[in-house]
Write a protein that binds this DNA or RNA. Structure first.
Lengths: 273, 273
DNA sequence: CCAATAGTGTCTGTGAGACAGTATAAG
DNA sequence: CTTATACTGTCTCACAGACACTATTGG
């Protein structure tokens, strides 16, 4: 290219077709917390993380489940705007917590053509859903097990059960970074099983040093409920006094109470920035 | 699309041109630590973070500095492979710590056409450089100042000084996430000023709960040197006893010593996984 | 009364922050 | 002897982990 063009001339003559091109998608892991009734009037509902999956009705991966997503409109929108557009379409929600997760780009991840996908994590409070999701289904994470760097996940939407297993392969030169390698996966399309795992790990890592949980909580909640959400994200039991000490700074007690649960009522709290 | 095709037929007939396409690049923030001699035989060298920048010799952003990067070869490589190819070209190094940072995708970030860039952070030990970098220059971070969510950075390669200022705009719905907005930047091309800041923040956040520093250290080092690297990354002084307590688990003392520094010699240590 | 959760008091151990002190090389 | 860094001892304070205890509801 000539050195003596002005910038304006240069841009006018620029032929953008000299570089090979590809398509991009934004895929969203929409995460929420759901409750399952225990058949005991005294016991509180069991809480689980749940994610929204869409059933594919076309090749490739026909009839498999995948994350909601869409192709990037190259001339108009950013990937985040694309993700918000999909979020609006699937849940009719806007103004939602959304964070970029990771860009997945294996050459053959989509058999049609080269597609690079930037994934996002959205956190929502399911109670805010003002419509039934169309053509999609909420899956609860009913099992999450990790041993020897191998993670097994089991999801259920009440009718269907989905299982997959991913091995975390340690990277050279580090002691704390992994590549994901899918070991078993019959039901999830593309590499979305890996996106799901990456998203869960992201949430788990951030839950202790940020306030992201409150994006999954209603305005008023009991400390017991909040603790359950932490426990389900961290996949372990917490001790009451320790939890209350830590959370005290982030919450404020209201005068409202939650009653009728078959045991001592509890105060409702609210998020305090 | 017809429902009665087999998957094979579907893929054969698939016309990938129905989606608009774009180009992608991988840009790398190559980070290292450099030492500057103090004019005092007793005092130890001053350590600084330094990054590798390339001078653009074409439009757009002619004569401005930018991160090493390259267009993705759509048919062959992943973004990380692309990044490693660039890394090899610029530094002749392979087998380097490399981690995906963030995907930058503002619609007008490249005036030629829509280009989405996935950025990577590479950490290297400058002593391992076996060749002079071509067409590129190491810039030391000689000033890093943050107040009121505004970060000012000053870089220098010995001849040229680069300044830029970025405001971190708090996101709705969170207390801990920011969008970067460039306030002043005359010398860095594209949005690479924001990539640099995001990279530095990533390293700073990870340095306390991972072992990434050792990627920037030679095999043998004194605890004083190691502490200086932590201090320069965290941009604050650390207390000796506390630092040594924490680092003890990650290092092992060797019988070697570093002498001739005008003061008490120190043992050389080595990374212990 | 029972079962279940709500909520608090307090002991203990760990570990970071802080400061003071000793050790040892080069010039 | 001075200067600068190397390295250690120890006190304090904050805070997480652990356990025990009291409170209060619906049935």
């Amino acid at each position: 290219m000539s050195e003596c063009l002005t910038e304006e001339e240069f841009l006018k003559n620029y032929d953008s077709s000299i570089y090979e091109k590809l398509s991009m998608t934004a895929d969203i892991l929409i995460v929420s917390v759901s409750s399952k009734d225990t058949n005991n009037y005294r016991k509180t509902d069991k809480k689980m993380m749940s994610i929204l999956l869409v059933k594919r009705d076309d090749y490739p991966y026909k009839d498999k489940w995948c994350l909601p997503g869409g192709f990037l409109d190259v001339n108009k929108e950013t990937l985040e705007e694309c993700a918000r557009r999909v979020l609006k379409r699937e849940t009719n929600l806007s103004n939602i917590y959304l964070e970029q997760l990771y860009t997945f780009d294996k050459v053959d991840r989509d058999p049609r053509m080269r597609v690079v996908s930037t994934s996002y994590v959205a956190l929502i409070d399911k109670e805010k859903l003002n419509q039934k999701v169309v053509n999609a289904s909420w899956f609860d994470i009913i099992k999450y097990e990790e041993k020897n760097n191998t993670v097994s996940l089991t999801l259920s939407n009440g009718e269907e059960i989905i299982d997959f297993t991913i091995t975390k392969k340690l990277r050279e030169k580090t002691t704390d970074r992994y590549d994901f390698v899918t070991k078993e996966n019959d039901s999830i399309a593309f590499d979305h099983d890996q996106v799901i795992l990456a998203g869960i790990e992201r949430i788990r890592n951030k839950v202790n040093y940020t306030d992201i949980v409150f994006n999954m909580m209603p305005e008023y909640f009991t400390l017991g409920e909040l603790q359950q959400v932490y426990e389900v994200i961290l996949n372990k039991k917490l001790l009451d006094p320790a939890f209350r000490r830590i959370i005290a700074k982030k919450t404020e007690k209201t005068s409202k109470m939650k009653t009728g649960e078959g045991h001592r009522p509890s105060y409702l709290f609210r998020y305090k920035k």
